[in-house]
Design a binder for these strands. Structure first.
Lengths: 300, 300
DNA sequence: ACCCCAAAGGTAGTTTTCCTACTTTTTTCT
DNA sequence: AGAAAAAAGTAGGAAAACTACCTTTGGGGT
């Protein structure tokens, strides 16, 4: 079994795209049509699709089985599900011609597809290892710059869930100093989408050299991950367009959510009670519009 | 036409859940079955579903039309698509009994459903108004605390896209001082999921009093939005469970993405060229593993 | 209390859709 | 070039989805 045990590998459009070149000639014609406008196809009947692709009906059936579907009915269902996120295939670049509605759709779609992709590619075993490490930590430090700095800060705010002091130094010097002071029972978490950011790699190496556990969150195999006890790859959909926003942040934030929640669940009943009480009081403060409140869902 | 013109309202499970109580008795039996295990249902045939629900086949058809589907075929497709994200209905609370796999699925699902919901409820006209205001700003300040503070900081980092100086004061005093110094051509953006955070409301009032344009991003109609030129409601799925993470951040971040991108698109060619150049050089720095680089996709 | 009317639900039959057995065409290898 | 195997098509049969019609149930009104 691979990491797709979550059952999310039924991204049919992806499968079709990958297998397209290995298909029979006529089947490929069908594949073209499906890929070109999956939205139309789910509404089509078998005969219509056959006509559209210029092939016979049994060919369409054969195409279905070739890409791993039970039959046409199954294809439709899988396709529909696939489309919900993997609208990625229809992701055209954002241009100045787009009106606001198109822009909204594109950006949401892009982020949704990306999250889905990240989920399907996430290695559960690696996450488990990270949770093990974090759960035993006496102190946790998160290292990240730029957009990843945002993620680090968010993680640090999740301190109540970790039940352990958390830090997120914001500049390279602080980061270096912090890393140097870590020791055996501490954990350092590096966050960098490229996995190449030099300071982060250095900081993790220093931390590791001092005996601290190290976790790396990156979008791809990279130098940073080579220096970590637990490398965590959070895949991102490639994106080279001018105006496409940074989608990696979101998946990184979700991974942080998962880690903090998983660690929290490992704690004992007392810890849970504290969180319950904290949440209740927070809600209370909000209800009162308490003027000294600086809280705004600071506790996940 | 309401704001669901994006065509994303086909969150069928949501629709069924909402209409369930208004359905005929037998139809409701069908609804129960569908809601209980939508995954099974997409694989079922009309007759099977009828048997499972203990009703006749035409009743199932009537159920289909009642909830707005063309027929059973259509139901299946819509259901399949709906399941991809709107697994929301199957969102059971996160408990200590969950294994890691379940946790990962739940947290991703929750965030995906939430983004989807936010998109379907987003008011395009309000977004347009916000973009108009931001595009004409001489300076933009983002106000947020806690999790929303993260969002504010992220927005501030998007400064290159806005093409306008951006700030995100991190404490209440700085925020107040900043608000007091804003004037007619400036814009203040308040971010608060509850929309009740007192300091933010105050800061926006001050900013507005000084003639600055004001935009509010909140999860619901609230005091903060009452004091804004442009109120922007970014709906969040309700969530009272102990361990469920804050999902609002993600949708707020996406809205910030939309706003910054939309503003950027309004700028002239020179601006676009600068961004292109900036991105290229950033990539170059990364490639070199330049030791002075503090960049990690800081430019959205 | 009874009857009537309307709405809900079921039965049976029709049509559409999907799939399979078999034939023809194309391709590939000796 | 010819034979065997793979690919594509034709036609017919099974099954699924839908519709027209009938029965039942339940809620007023006299």
């Amino acid at each position: 079994m691979d990491q797709t045990a979550t059952g999310l590998d039924d991204n049919l459009l992806e499968v079709i795209l990958r297998q397209k070149d290995d298909l029979r000639k006529s089947d490929r014609r069908v594949a073209e049509v499906v890929l070109a406008s999956p939205g139309e196809v789910v509404a089509m009947t078998l005969a219509q699709l056959a006509k559209e692709a210029g092939v016979s009906e049994p060919t369409v059936i054969r195409f279905c089985t070739a890409i791993g579907c039970e039959g046409y009915r199954d294809l439709r269902v899988k396709l529909a599900r696939s489309m919900a996120f993997a609208r990625s295939t229809s992701h055209t670049a954002i241009t100045s011609d787009d009106d606001l509605g198109a822009l909204i759709t594109k950006i949401f779609d892009y982020n949704l597809s990306n999250l889905n992709w990240a989920q399907s590619k996430l290695d559960e075993a690696a996450v488990r290892a990270a949770v093990d490490l974090l759960a035993g930590a006496r102190r946790i430090e998160f290292f990240g710059f730029g957009a990843s700095g945002i993620v680090a800060r968010d993680a640090q705010q999740k301190f109540p869930l970790f039940g352990t002091p958390c830090g997120a130094p914001s500049d390279a010097h602080q980061m270096y100093m912090t890393a140097e002071m870590l020791c055996a029972e501490d954990v350092a978490v590096g966050i960098s989408n490229t996995g190449h950011t030099r300071e982060i790699v250095d900081a993790l190496q220093v931390a590791r050299g001092n005996g601290a556990g190290t976790i790396g969150i990156a979008g791809q195999p990279s130098p940073m991950l080579d220096h970590c006890d637990v490398p965590l790859v959070v895949e991102t959909l490639e994106n080279t367009d001018l105006f496409t926003p940074t989608v990696s942040r979101l998946s990184h934030l979700v991974v942080i959510d998962i880690l903090s929640t998983a660690v929290s669940l490992r704690r004992d009943e007392t810890h849970h009670q504290r969180i319950t009480r904290m949440k209740a009081r927070l809600a209370q403060r909000r209800g009162k519009l308490n003027p000294t409140s600086t809280s705004d869902s600071s506790a996940g």
